[in-house]
Design a protein around this nucleic acid. Structure first.
Lengths: 182, 182
DNA sequence: ATTACTCGCTACAGCCATGTTGCAAGTAGC
DNA sequence: GCTACTTGCAACATGGCTGTAGCGAGTAAT
């Protein structure tokens, strides 16, 4: 069960169009055994996304973003999410999928949590007063995605990656003395 | 020919696993006609990635990044690439693919160009002296990707998107007076 | 009108993944 | 030993996509 889901994650991460046969082989079981647990391919994908969504929700919740200073919360959430996302790369990439309403709900909720956290950060002076929170959130997501990609291929630890993500998000890479474009 | 490639781009952008039938339908031709131009599905994909790669190379080259100040070059390259990437979203996402060596070569060259530009920017004081160029480049790519996604769904103009990308890359979203994490 | 060309349509063969079933072997518990 | 359960294996049916071939209609040029 867990074995099959983890194998599916590995296989689909390498090739989203992989077959049930490949998943079974990676799990070390027969293809029919996979079908015994998951009636259809769709069902397997759904289980996978649901499983990842629960891990995701847990990772976000355990950061207690509401009861810590924004900067600390930002760092904790980032590190926790990176841990999950490097292990469940493929499953976590299936966010917008119409399948599995629970996963969609989780992602929507996290999205709200994230925007709320960013708003708190802006009010606390951590973010610039003129920061566009929608764009800020999308950039934040993109940075996490990129850092997770590095974590998958090179296996860095979540804390170091989180530090770089938050640093890139807040400071950028420009010299403080450089001219500004807009 | 062009019609079919453009249709393929649209269809595959919506669903990478789309069939030749769907492509043909989107192009307004019969499936056999698609096969007359592109012997196999693989051949169609290759043409598509090759076509996008040429557009990409042209977009980068026409920015004359070597002969303008780093900050200007960064902005020009960003805007040009965004124009191509919003139109050829799917085809441009097939970078690491082993198929079509020309596309792989183009992407490798652009990557080098980009790192060279970032190095110039750092030496010119546009980037912080301690900026990790590899990480900077990956973040830059991620920002372009994100901005292009917005361009695809909401159709903003390339200049405005480029401004936001460069601004996010250089300044980030943090308040200049806020404490730093690392 | 003839020729050359392109396209749509139909039909077909082949392949591969999916999903199902039945049977045999192995294991754990009683 | 007996039972219940799980698994592997082989076989099969099904469906969908791919790629090919042939025929007929339409069009443009000479």
């Amino acid at each position: 069960m867990r074995t099959i889901l983890e194998a599916a994650e590995r296989v689909f991460a390498a090739n989203p169009a992989a077959t049930m046969e490949q998943v079974a082989q990676a799990a070390g079981v027969a293809r029919t055994t996979v079908h015994r647990r998951f009636a259809t391919r769709e069902a397997l994908l759904e289980e996978l996304t649901g499983w990842a969504a629960r891990q995701f929700a847990e990772a976000v919740a355990s950061a207690h973003a509401d009861s810590t200073p924004p900067l600390v919360a930002l760092y904790q959430v980032t590190a926790n999410v990176l841990r999950v996302k490097t292990d469940w790369w493929f499953a976590m990439s299936r966010t917008g999928d119409r399948a599995h309403p629970e996963a969609a709900r989780v992602h929507a909720e996290v999205r709200d949590d994230c925007e709320r956290l960013l708003r708190r950060a802006r009010e606390a002076g951590v973010l610039r007063p003129d920061a566009d929170l929608g764009w800020t959130r999308r950039v934040y997501y993109a940075l996490i995605h990129e850092a997770a990609a590095e974590g998958v291929t090179e296996g860095g630890d979540a804390e170091a990656l989180a530090t770089r993500v938050v640093d890139a998000l807040l400071r950028g890479f420009g010299s403080p003395t450089a001219p500004v474009i807009a």
